[in-house]
Amino acid sequence: MPTTEPASPPAPSAPVRPPGRFDGLGLHGLMTVLSLLMILPFAWMVLASLKTLAEAGEPAWLPKAAQWGNYLEVFQVIPFLRFGANSLVIAGWVTLLQVFTSALAAYSFARLEWPGRDRLFFLYLGTMMLPGLVMVIPNFQIMMHYRMVDSYLGLVLPPVYSALGAAGGAFGTFLLRQFMLGIPRALDEAAEMDGASKWRIFWDVILPLSRPGVVTLAIFTFMGNYHSFFWPLVMMKTVDKYTLPVGLLFFDSEHGQATHLLMAAVTMSVLPLILIFVFLQRQLIRGIQLGAVKG
């Protein structure tokens, strides 16, 4: 299997003007239409969250009168803040750990030369190709063995490495390796000349330069784990440790679903994601520019 080459050759990136067919306003018009298409479910969701239960079953998009009380009711039916905090903290830990361990591993795979390196890398890659579903039971047994079922630790550790719902560490390593391959060798060689240790080179040179990759991976991991449903569902027993997607099941009942409350809860659960995305997105763009200047 041939190795894949640089993902993103760094280069000075000045404002580019690739002449396009869409001129200014036309382009913006098109983007608006496309954006609307993308907003559609979101808009529907927000509108549905303002309906009464009976209205939620009807085709009309608009509620007859906005039921803002639905949002308050969510807090009465489920401990929303508790679930939300659980979700955020768990997804945060998984993201931090996965990004960090993947970056270390990717550095080793992309920049260091040691016997058996490529073979081990392809083993990493290969593990992504087995459906995560069949890994659930063995992982659960391992958790049972170490008494980590129904604990926060059990929700954080396995997803860092294994693809239980969201992509696992193998994907992170793959992604960051692709980014690191694109950083010119001259940079770390120069650092080595200055007598920097491998750790220094990783921490001070390579990691900052692979910022776009790191931020991209952080976005993917956070989003994926914030939404992760199956693993927390199977693992948890104590209600106070539930994550949001599992907690949303509280709106289901034998005789139907409280769609209006569910939609209000989902709407609220999306807000932190949007904030985090906007923040990280800025990092993504800044990162690319910084990296380019240094390169």
Partner: peptide, 8 residues
């Protein structure tokens, strides 16, 4: 069509 399922 909605998740209210039976309700509709």
């Amino acid at each position: 069509a909605d998740a209210t399922g039976w309700d509709s």
